[in-house]
Amino acid sequence: MRSASIAECGHEESNAVKETQLLDIHDLVVHFLREEQVVKAVDGVDLRVKPGESVGLVGESGSGKTVLSRSIARLMANAVIDKMSGQVVFQNTDLLSLSERELERRRRKSFLSMVFQDPLGYLNPTKRVGRQVAEALPPELSRRSRRHRVAELFTQVGLPGDKASLRLYPHEFSGGMRQRVLIAMALASRPRLLIADEPTTALDVTVQVQVLNTLERLHREQDMALLVITHDLALVAELCDRVYVMYAGQIVESGDVETVLSSPHHPYTQGLIASMPGQRRRMNKVDGLVGSVPNLALLPSGCRFRSRCPHAFDRCEEMPPLMPTSTGSTSRCWLSEPEAEGEDPS
């Protein structure tokens, strides 16, 4: 009797946690096989997004952001996957355990959508944009309401919704417009979570601002949660409530945006911030990052940032866990242990 009630208790508790989370990733591992080597692109990631929240995921190029976001959406197309484990709980269902059929069904309605990094490659060059967007609508819609809805989506993302524009082909659009088409497509199913993978890297600065404003407006108006992937911390500061910092397949720091940006604990985060244009003077304690993300197939043991870290010491040969810090964020660094704080060896 007793053991049963304990089990029940545990169950209830985890349910309570789940209910407040829209997305709850637990210990996600995605390893590829490339030329007979294991590429640890995502290696034990925990990440949460509450309904209506805006979360940032930052990290340098090659740190595994795209792989992580694609795995969440189960869109890891055409990769030779060596190992994929963990849980991606979205709306109380573990997506990794869903059948392909079930996924397809869910994707059509209030699920999660993605906006991809490169807008041209992700649009079919031989199909009119209007039709491509219409494809994302629930199939039961009538022809008329379909057309109406596409035009509506176009105006929502700031594109002209007239008939002629819908009949254009992707190559007849500018880069910014293509990105908006992709966003319109992602919004068609009224998703609860929009994952935007570097939505603005391919665009020039003025267009970047416009696209970001569009995303933010949609986020507010439709109460849609956002997971924004970027290497631009300024963007995160502007758009997000919370932020995860990713390095070499792992989360190395997470917390409220203000906390993390104003008092970063992990040396990598400090380096990222110091590398921001205009930040060099303010953070005179740390220099910008040197070097780049190590080959994810040949990772050293222990802390993965060790080789580039200005504060590395003996203990770094052991992998630090993610631990709570004094400011309420979490950090994967021995120096962030509350009792270790202040005893910077350098």
Partner: peptide, 10 residues
């Protein structure tokens, strides 16, 4: 390269 991969590298 694996014999069972579902896809082809570009």
């Amino acid at each position: 390269m694996s014999l069972s991969g579902d896809s082809v590298d570009t």
